[in-house]
């Protein structure tokens, strides 16, 4: 029961992120949606799948995946934002 709820809400958050990617007006707002909602949805999904198998190695891998996602998602967003900002300022000058 708990696993079903976790899986459904995780995929729902990924769907919301994709919806935000369509609906927001400019790039920075779109990145707000994809960075936060996608990592949270994957977090829920990974926790649900790890609880489904529930062996030691799977739990260890799940912790690794979650740590890795949460360390890298803001870095990727920061990298894209900085390159976009450079281009934006150059075209404005």
């Amino acid at each position: 029961m708990l696993i079903s709820i976790l899986m459904l809400s995780g995929t729902l958050f990924i769907l919301i992120a994709a919806l935000g990617l369509i609906r927001f007006k400019d790039l920075y707002s779109r990145m707000h949606a994809t960075t936060k909602a996608t990592s949270f949805g994957l977090l829920l999904l990974v926790v649900g799948v790890a609880l489904f198998f529930f062996t030691g190695i799977v739990l260890l891998k799940a912790i690794l995946i979650v740590l890795f996602i949460y360390l890298t998602a803001p870095l990727a967003a920061h990298s894209i934002a900085r390159s976009f900002r450079n281009e934006d300022q150059e075209s404005r000058d």
Binding site: T35, S39, Y70, P74, A77, H78, R82, R85
Partner: peptide, 10 residues
Amino acid sequence: SMTPGTLVVE
């Protein structure tokens, strides 16, 4: 970057 409505740019 993970809290509501803020994103680091530079």
